[in-house]
Design a protein around this nucleic acid. Structure first.
Lengths: 241, 241
DNA sequence: TGACTAATAGTCATCCCGACTATAAATGCG
DNA sequence: CGCATTTATAGTCGGGATGACTATTAGTCA
């Protein structure tokens, strides 16, 4: 339908374009997702991913950053991770009208602003493994986002995006274990991370008293590397699809 | 901007939504891309990715399949690979109006229908390494698509999508070498492929006379596996970004 | 002081992979 | 016909990464 004579204004249907955000964080050793409760039909009372319209002068990326700031209160995006996931465009996905949504996945370190108030309904953190059926096709989007994050932990240094600026290797390991839902061997994880140049770098001075029991752990911060070669593969369940 | 009172018709700008396709194939040992020549402004005379508007009752995926059929003449999608790449939504990407495009990457086996004629300008195969500056942001889309395909060869069995139903391991290796632009060691490649269960399965009977010199090679077809564990990594240029 | 906990160090066998050599089976040229 | 050439296939060898473990260190808590 590429029109050789330029755009014909009847050749296309105008769509509403929105962004939807799957925002993950780690709190109390669990993977949590930022959700908003819908106040009216359709799907009144259901939880939904935060999101909103792309404004006339915005890209989807800019809209996603704006929404992320509005819902979480974060002001500086440094250290945050936000990436486009994919676009969902099935005609019936919103019963009211034709809405095409560009989905994003975002990662926040543990104590994110407890969700600042905007105009929208208050956003809340819910345990990922306890989210009921969501509004629209948001279950699917959330599942896709989780799969993407899990996969990217394998071959990127993304895990540090879940951590505060300084962290222990134990905390970093917890990121992998929580997202993947699998325990990892501690010495082997340590060896792998330290053997990857640029993944983490040790903070010269202090060793944090872990707040509790055990030998205090050394502190690290994220290194400059983004890719992880060779990858750190999930314990193979033999031919994962 | 999630409106608690339902959609306000002034709360959003209607956008045009299109799909753009980066269609790759292998011909004569080179990687080729399907392009159309633009007839009018903007970017008159420039090459562009084939694409078009998403129709009112279509998803972007359906629009992409339709466009793929229109431009290439393929009728059965079996064996073909088409996947969503990402969405490009910068406000200025089309000077005429606000157009958001969902980009797709597609792979075709060698002798695809030589590009059937639709309403659109005739599509043509061009060598990937020889494409000049394309219209709009299509250079960027094409580069992203190429990177995505190259990356997916590493950890999926996608390479068979470039091959006819029956192929030799030498042909399969050519897929990797052509997309990656790197020569591979033949015995090692062979060992790796055969050691991955479900990647390929040997065709019982024949051995193809390769049409020319050398020992005839055994024929294989694609197996049932989709993932490649462990991955088949590109010769590391040491810390690829 | 002594269990307990967590971090860190180190060992060992295995598997994967890059580099390489060798053999087999066809073509084509002299 | 014989031999170089070409391509497919088989196998070897060493090193590095990794999974499974054991041991030691340095703290807290009772």
């Amino acid at each position: 339908m590429t029109s050789p004579e330029g755009y014909d204004k009847y050749a296309f249907e105008p769509f509403a374009v929105t962004v939807d955000l799957a925002v993950f964080t780690l709190r109390a050793g669990t993977l949590q997702v930022l959700l908003v409760e819908r106040g009216q039909e359709p799907y009144a009372g259901r939880w939904a991913l935060p999101g909103g319209f792309v404004l006339p002068e915005e890209s989807a990326e800019q809209a996603a950053w704006r929404e992320l700031a509005e819902e979480t209160g974060v002001t500086d995006g440094s250290g945050l991770h936000l990436e486009q996931l994919r676009t969902y465009s099935e005609p019936g996905r919103d019963p009211r009208m034709r809405v095409v949504t560009v989905a994003f996945a975002a990662l926040l370190p543990d104590p994110p602003a407890p969700h600042g108030g905007g105009d929208a309904a208050q956003a809340q953190w819910l345990r990922f493994d306890a989210v009921g059926p969501l509004a629209f096709d948001h279950d699917r989007i959330l599942a896709d986002a989780h799969e993407r994050v899990g996969a990217k932990l394998e071959y990127t240094c993304l895990a540090t995006a879940f951590c505060p600026p300084e962290f222990t290797l134990g905390e970093l390991q917890q990121v992998y274990e929580t997202v993947w839902g699998t325990p990892l061997d501690r010495p082997n994880f340590r060896r792998k991370v330290l053997a990857t140049p640029g993944f983490v770098e040790q903070v010269p001075g202090a060793a944090r008293l872990t707040g509790g029991r055990g030998k205090p752990a050394a502190l690290y911060r994220a290194g400059g590397a983004t890719a992880l070669h060779p990858p750190l593969l999930r314990p193979t369940t033999e031919g994962r699809p």
